[in-house]
Lab assay of single mutants.
Amino acid sequence: MALNTPQITPTKKITVRAIGEELPRGDYQRCPQCDMLFSLPEINSHQSAYCPRCQAKIRDGRDWSLTRLAAMAFTMLLLMPFAWGEPLLHIWLLGIRIDANVMQGIWQMTKQGDAITGSMVFFCVIGAPLILVTSIAYLWFGNRLGMNLRPVLLMLERLKEWVMLDIYLVGIGVASIKVQDYAHIQAGVGLFSFVALVILTTVTLSHLNVEELWERFYPQRPATRRDEKLRVCLGCHFTGYPDQRGRCPRCHIPLRLRRRHSLQKCWAALLASIVLLLPANLLPISIIYLNGGRQEDTILSGIMSLASSNIAVAGIVFIASILVPFTKVIVMFTLLLSIHFKCQQGLRTRILLLRMVTWIGRWSMLDLFVISLTMSLINRDQILAFTMGPAAFYFGAAVILTILAVEWLDSRLLWDAHESGNARFDD
């Protein structure tokens, strides 16, 4: 018995066209964080690309023209004298008006014999932002004059995390709450300039795509075929072959399989920071003279006294001054041990922890910024005066060393310790 099946006739004509040209192939790229070699397709503007294995951002879609970056830099340069030299806060102490600005706080630190601690604050609040705007201006002028731009481009990517104007702005709020127990506070004209400078700096850093600047100024022929001998440069993120001198053909720094002496430098910085954190938390970090009496505060006791007036601000200072430094030390110690013992479990967790400490590390400088600003506000000789204690130097040095330890660690070593050939990683 035959089955009668109805015929289905399409209502619209289906047209099949042959592909007349070869589909576009992607360029081969190595991930600078996990060293995976993959094919990167062509990316349009405002599109980002991520590593298929570790999800690290390979290409950032946010990109401004150099002219727009230069305009932002010149605007920031105009704001800087007002943000640093004009009063941020006014207080009335014992019937006398006192003005506080950024430069005055750094000068008070240096004047009291601790120039190293003052230079830490100076670099993060004044030096690094000033280098940022002058570097962008150098790129703008240098591109037109045919100057060598490689050193500036190499420095810009590392400079971003040292620009800490946003953290200093939080420190202004913390210092205001600490001082309000002794005097009446009012915002100064410099505060508005400083807030504007923070906003412009944040926007500029978020749109400063150094890798795209490398592509514009020093374009290189990408690798179009897969080759395990391809290496990625950690300076400019170019994937290719080393030249005859073993250097990256684009930025001219040595092109090595792994960062040289990464573990040794990381261990040295980490152990030194552990040693410095002990006096930083045991010795007094601030000293207040009130009517001839002397009151010393460690980091913890200062947080407890701050909690009596504002528990939320005390929580912020606790996280930045105690929780973050010790968390960074514990995480980095764990990561280094996992590399030495070739741990194969929990790779995803370790990668996330490394990215976390990379982002939060700079916030530990908050305590030094609060001390710097408070020193310029309260300084009335023996009637009422505020000065920093010996722990300030140890704390600042420990924070900087932990930042350097994270920067010096080559994250690809975590993958080397893991089993080879993993296309995915999980716990």
Rank of each mutant, 00 (worst) to 15 (best):
A73S: 07
R355V: 15
I351F: 12
H252Y: 04
N281K: 03
R350G: 10
V198H: 15
D410L: 00
W363I: 01
D35S: 05
A272N: 03
S65N: 11
F326N: 06
K265A: 05
F386I: 00
I96R: 07
L156G: 04
F238T: 09
S372M: 15
F38A: 04
P24H: 08
R216A: 13
R53T: 08
W359S: 14
L3H: 07
I185A: 02
L94H: 00
R59K: 06
A83L: 02
L352D: 09
A100Y: 01
R259A: 13
L79T: 03
N310T: 14
M103R: 03
G85Q: 09
F194I: 12
V370Q: 00
D410N: 00
L78M: 07
I288D: 00
R247M: 13
P129R: 00
A320G: 15
C34D: 01
N143Y: 15
G246D: 14
G315M: 14
D381C: 02
R150N: 06
G171T: 11
N291A: 15
F82S: 03
R221T: 14
M147I: 04
F192K: 11
L352E: 09
L154I: 09
G421S: 04
A2Q: 07
H237Q: 13
A18F: 10
L37N: 06
V324N: 12
S305F: 09
P41L: 06
L384F: 07
I8Y: 05
R256I: 11
L270Q: 11
T298W: 06
R53F: 08
Q345S: 12
L156R: 04
D181L: 01
R30H: 05
A397Q: 02
D381N: 09
A137L: 08
I126F: 15
F425K: 14
T75A: 08
P222A: 13
S308T: 13
A71R: 01
K160Q: 10
I378T: 01
V16K: 07
Q29I: 07
L208D: 08
F341H: 08
L257M: 13
D35G: 04
R355F: 14
L401D: 09
I185S: 02
G146Y: 04
F217I: 14
L336Q: 11
L154S: 03
V370G: 01
T327E: 03
R362A: 05
N209C: 11
T9V: 06
A196P: 05
V121F: 11
I303A: 06
G361P: 00
L234Q: 11
H207F: 15
D297R: 01
D367Q: 00
S411L: 10
Y28M: 10
Q108P: 13
P32W: 12
Q112E: 04
L156H: 12
I253P: 04
T358Q: 12
I43C: 05
P81L: 04
G85F: 04
K265W: 03
M332W: 06
A398G: 10
S420Q: 13
I253L: 10
F333N: 11
R226C: 13
R362K: 07
M365Q: 08
L37I: 08
K13S: 05
P32C: 08
P284G: 12
E21G: 11
R59A: 09
G302A: 07
I288L: 04
V170K: 02
N209V: 09
M356A: 12
V324M: 15
I339L: 10
E161W: 03
A423C: 15
S273I: 06
E407F: 10
W84H: 07
F192T: 12
G190L: 01
R258H: 09
H207T: 09
M80T: 09
A312M: 13
L353N: 09
L384M: 09
S273L: 03
C34Y: 00
T204M: 11
C31W: 00
R231S: 10
K328A: 00
I274P: 05
C124G: 11
N422W: 06
L347V: 12
L335M: 10
H90N: 06
S338Q: 15
A417W: 12
C343E: 12
L200N: 15
N310M: 09
A49Y: 09
C343V: 12
G240N: 14
S45D: 05
Y168F: 14
S65M: 04
Q47N: 05
L277W: 02
I303Y: 06
G113S: 11
D63R: 15
Q112A: 10
G127T: 09
F326L: 08
L337H: 12
N44G: 06
L145A: 09
I400C: 10
T134R: 00
L208W: 10
L337T: 11
N148E: 08
C31E: 00
I351P: 10
F194A: 08
L300W: 15
Y138K: 02
L191H: 04
K178H: 07
L132Q: 04
T239I: 08
P41D: 05
I319C: 13
Q244H: 14
T204N: 11
D297G: 06
L336E: 02
F38T: 05
M76G: 03
C251W: 00
L37W: 05
M356Q: 13
G235Y: 05
Q104G: 05
K178F: 01
L368V: 10
T374Q: 00
D381H: 04
